[in-house]
């Protein structure tokens, strides 16, 4: 069984992201492994341990993404490939899915593709479901728990999240599966593995190598905007006692027709 996890490098969780006066998005320094992808990488490593699966991590991006790829290798993924072509500089989710579909066809024997919940930088998960249709594979989103994989029979059983409850579903491999939130305890690389991964070779595939015919992006970001400053004119509710303040607040909410 060959499991592919598709990751991205994104600004750190705790980074302050701002749009500068030139309209450029800034976040301090480097890129790290997209936080949601840590769970997907861990899930792939668990499959490697439990079922002897082979594992590959794929990323679309320039060399700034190498460190995050090496983190996935240090956590235990066996090989890494980075897809990059200057024509993909301003890629959208559709192009991402087309490039990944080409890379998966190139790998040839992939049974299962795993994704974290979303890419935090584009704040998008549509590339996941687009890839499913680009490949024509079965798709299950928001996995809460992987119940069973049978590589011989080519079947997969899992629990998935919906707003109204939890579905237990079975499907056939090959399949594309996204993870819901934090479904496992993410693995962290050991120092020894970090050193080993730092010397690992990462394959780099361009559009020609993937036989990828690129159309212009379908979605174009026209501009980035800082969040609107919320009105700074808070009205402090005063009163001699908690009960007086509470009544004053309720009065205000009534007047504003909020109740």
């Amino acid at each position: 069984m060959h499991v592919v996890v598709i990751t991205k490098a994104t600004p750190d969780d705790n980074a302050t992201v701002r749009v500068d006066p030139q309209g450029v998005v800034t976040w301090g320094d480097k890129l790290v492994l997209n936080p949601w992808d840590e769970y997907a990488v861990t899930e792939a490593v668990l499959l490697q341990e439990r079922y002897g699966a082979r594992t590959t991590v794929l990323t679309l991006g320039n060399e700034a993404h190498d460190e995050a790829l090496k983190k996935s290798l240090a956590i235990g993924i066996q090989q890494a490939a980075r897809i990059w072509d200057p024509a993909l500089e301003k890629h959208d989710s559709l192009q991402h899915s087309q490039a990944m579909a080409a890379a998966i066809r190139k790998l040839g024997d992939v049974d299962l593709v795993l994704f974290g919940k979303e890419f935090t930088d584009t704040a998008n998960d549509q590339h996941i479901y687009m890839l499913g249709r680009q490949l024509g594979w079965n798709v299950v989103g928001s996995m809460l728990k992987l119940l069973q994989v049978d590589p011989t029979a080519g079947t997969l059983r899992l629990e998935r999240m919906l707003e109204q409850g939890i579905q237990t579903v079975s499907t056939r491999l090959p399949a594309v599966v996204s993870l819901f939130d934090d479904i496992n305890e993410p693995r962290y690389p050991s120092f020894v593995n970090i050193r080993k991964a730092s010397r690992a070779a990462i394959s780099i595939w361009d559009a020609a190598e993937l036989d990828l015919a690129l159309e212009p992006p379908a979605v174009e970001v026209l501009e980035y905007l800082n969040l609107p400053e919320r009105v700074g004119n808070v009205e402090m509710i005063e009163g001699d006692t908690p009960s007086a303040k509470a009544q004053a607040l309720v009065q205000k909410l009534m007047e504003a027709k909020l109740l």
């Binding site: 600004p11 969780d13 302050t16 992201v17 701002r18 749009v19 998005v25 976040w27 935090t120 930088d121 584009t122 704040a123 159309e215 212009p216 992006p217 379908a218 979605v219 174009e220 970001v221 026209l222 501009e223 980035y224 905007l225 800082n226 969040l227």
Partner: peptide, 16 residues
């Protein structure tokens, strides 16, 4: 729509 985990916003257009 949001970008960068909702820390900023973007204005985006569907071209095709």
């Amino acid at each position: 729509r949001p970008a960068y985990d909702g820390k900023v916003l973007c204005r985006a257009v569907l071209r095709r």
